[in-house]
Design a protein around this nucleic acid. Structure first.
Lengths: 207, 207
DNA sequence: AACACAAACGGACCGTAGTCCCGTTGCAGG
DNA sequence: CCTGCAACGGGACTACGGTCCGTTTGTGTT
């Protein structure tokens, strides 16, 4: 645990056939997910479509959730880059409260765009999977720092979990699809909620 | 469709062997869940322990989640009864904000007591399972009414989901077990959060 | 008591996620 | 170019949730 070596980083050259197969698998998974939907695509089908054996698929990606995570990596990293180093109000430069609101808007959009894939990446066999793997830790740290900056009297460590909870893919997709709430309503509700929570005692101008 | 006869309504009494087997199955499941843990108990094992076939098990309870729900029914119904008709501050009689805080405390306790079972009942194959089945709808309606009463200018329909999200079994168990947050901290954080959200502009006395 | 029939029973069966092991192959060193 | 070996490949295998269907059994009727 202490001497954790990143396997990808420590193997400068992945064997050529392995790299080729990884690409094939990612491409095949993307194709099938787009064609049949994430939920209706089995790992067998992905392996077949990629022209590799099942063993290879699981050797490369460990499990279904990690494969979904790998497919999400690009857009997920872009979002992280934006809220860490991007332009205000999402990135540095704006007030913490405004950044937090922008973060919620960005995450809502990210979930609306990549919902099914995120859901698949959050559904591992072990309990509390999404809280361990994936970008949750990064989101959490970011939100915690913003809360601590905006309202030092609050329990930022706890509130970070609280504020991330309503942005969960399962809930957001349910609100969008089953409950037919438009994305703008979720964004507006989030904005007002964050304002009231962080600026308690300060009158918020509602337009 | 017009001359539809309800088959269930015409069979007031369940057949004796069916009732006997239901009891056997519930008892066996309770025993194995207690002995080996919910996550490590297979449906096959429950059927064997109950001395019935697998078909019978699934005929009675539909799927794993519903079986967990049936085992939860007693304590879950008791909690519902309490916040609907029980004594204040959980039941009627207190201010909506106080009732909402008490509701959160009650639900946190319920989750802390029955976490693994709730988790099993929330993990069906279909997406967003916990939002469709189980007591979520009742919780949601209750919370929505309290919000609407306490702060009519808020989007109670949306905020009900938001406030229930941090009380999810997955998150609460993670906070309690992995993050080692004591239950009192979650309760305190919830209380302060609800106060700030519903009483924005009103100074809350912090002891 | 005998009967008829719906309901319940139970285990064979299926699809899927994930594991394992052995034959194969790319790659470095001689 | 040849060789050794560690990593890779692939499919047979397991465990599990869930379904199906031929058989049994409880129950109301005559």
């Amino acid at each position: 645990m202490s001497s954790l070596e990143l396997p990808l980083a420590s193997t400068p050259c992945e064997r050529a056939d392995a790299a080729r197969n990884r690409q094939r698998i990612l491409a095949a998974a993307g194709r099938l997910f787009a064609r049949d939907g994430v939920a209706c695509t089995s790992m067998d089908a992905i392996a077949a479509e990629a022209g590799v054996g099942k063993g290879t698929l699981f050797r490369r990606f460990g499990d279904r959730a990690s494969l979904a995570l790998a497919l999400l990596d690009a857009s997920s990293s872009a979002f992280q880059e934006n809220f860490i180093r991007g332009p205000a109000p999402l990135g540095p430069g704006a007030l913490p409260c405004e950044r937090l609101i922008a973060f919620g808007h960005g995450l809502l959009e990210h979930v609306a765009d990549n919902g099914d894939l995120i859901l698949a990446s959050e559904r591992p066999s072990i309990s509390g999977g999404r809280l361990h793997a994936g970008p949750y830790a990064a989101y959490r740290t970011h939100v915690m720092l913003l809360i601590a900056e905006a309202a030092p009297d609050l329990d930022a460590d706890y509130l970070a979990d609280v504020l991330l909870a309503p942005l969960t893919a399962e809930l957001v997709l349910h609100q969008l699809k089953e409950r037919q709430m438009p994305l703008e309503r979720l964004a507006g509700g989030w904005e007002k909620m964050v304002h009231r929570l962080l600026n308690a005692g300060v009158r918020v101008d509602d337009p």
